[in-house]
């Protein structure tokens, strides 16, 4: 076993442990159905958090994710309901706009040497404001294509359901793992997060990499917005408030170092699943307020940051 995979193992085992605990305590918890529902309910978050993983690996942060999700939902629903667009061109437009939005944030961060925090914070207000300007009301989506896609899926044993959004999330996951660990761009992202100055001296194109990372994150957020609209059948400017923070939490619980350079995309999936399983546990219990989810996630975050601190400290000592 390689020491560098340790946080990943911790995350996976924690998920298994939580799931097992639920299964022991509640009838029906330990089923494939509950497991698959974790994916169905959190598909959009998985996608957004994967985009966030790249940003954090590169040593940055993206606070605009939640707003971008809302904005893409609003654009799609307005184009469909008010202008009679078919969903597919609307999706394409939203993905392109999202990518451009992220790329411009990346360009501003790189060329003006600004903090990602502040640039994406501005992006967050911009996207949220823009979606409210487009439509303050929630816009319902009614289209046969949406019904077809939402119904599409495969029946699994035990009444479990592999739906379209889960499929999208899993495909995104596979592509993201490939991108992070089997392409040159991935190596550059890790390098940038490890030591930006050294990376530059080793010939890593810093500008292109930074811009790609933020473009990717916003693309993923736009895609998450599409998946989210299949879940809610509407576009609403106040949807997905704070999702960027859930995404960051999932990335960190997934074992990625917040300062960049260390971590794995697969860990982020388990980070989201852990948050999902806590939520499921609380809804199975029935007596606990759903806000307990936040408390548990807060504690988990704290434990994971402490764990990373410990691992990093030990790594430096062994040198």
């Amino acid at each position: 076993m390689h020491k560098k995979f340790l946080p990943l193992y911790v995350t996976c085992s924690l998920f298994a442990l939580l799931f097992a605990a639920g299964a022991v305590q509640f009838e029906n918890f330990g089923s494939l159905r509950v497991f698959m529902n974790l994916f169905t309910d959190n598909a959009f978050l998985i996608i957004a958090a994967i985009g966030m993983t790249f940003v954090i690996l590169s040593g940055g942060i993206d606070l605009s994710v939640g707003s971008t999700i809302a904005l893409s939902g609003v654009i799609i629903s307005v184009l469909m309901q008010n202008y009679g667009w078919h969903p597919l061109p609307a999706f394409a437009l939203v993905l392109v706009l999202g990518t451009l939005f992220g790329a411009s944030m990346g360009a501003i961060i790189h060329y003006y040497q600004l903090q990602p925090f502040i640039v994406t914070l501005a992006g967050m207000f911009f996207a949220r404001g823009l979606s409210s300007v487009i439509s303050e009301e929630s816009v319902p989506i009614m289209h046969s294509f949406y019904d077809d896609v939402a119904m599409f899926g495969f029946e699994l044993p035990g009444g479990a359901w592999l739906g379209s959004s889960t499929i999208i999330a899993l495909v995104v996951l596979a592509l993201a793992i490939w991108l992070a660990n089997f392409t040159r761009l991935g190596g550059r992202v890790y390098g940038l997060g490890g030591d930006a100055q050294s990376a530059a001296l080793m010939g890593v194109p810093i500008a292109r990499t930074t811009i790609s990372v933020y473009a990717l994150s916003s693309f993923m957020a736009a895609l998450a917005g599409i998946v989210f609209s299949f879940y809610t059948f509407s576009g609403y400017s106040l949807a997905a408030v704070g999702v960027e923070l859930d995404a960051i939490a999932a990335v960190v619980i997934g074992g990625t170092l917040l300062t960049g350079g260390y971590g794995y995309v697969l860990g982020t999936l388990f980070g989201v699943l852990i948050m999902g399983v806590v939520q499921t546990y609380i809804s199975f219990d029935g007596t606990l307020s759903s806000w307990w989810t936040k408390i548990v996630i807060g504690l988990l975050l704290f434990v994971f940051i402490a764990l990373q601190r410990y691992l990093v400290g030990r790594g430096q000592k062994s040198r």
């Binding site: 490939w178 660990n181 089997f182 392409t183 040159r184 991935g186 190596g187 550059r188 890790y190 390098g191 997060g193 490890g194 030591d195 050294s198 990376a199 080793m202 010939g203 890593v204 350079g261 260390y262």
Partner: peptide, 23 residues
């Protein structure tokens, strides 16, 4: 060099050998 990457990655960063589009 990049302390967080492996020795091999440090040696080949930017020129990683590829197969079927994968490193």
């Amino acid at each position: 060099l990049l302390p967080n990457l492996t020795v091999a990655q440090n040696l080949f960063l930017g020129l990683e050998p590829k197969r079927f589009g994968c490193i």
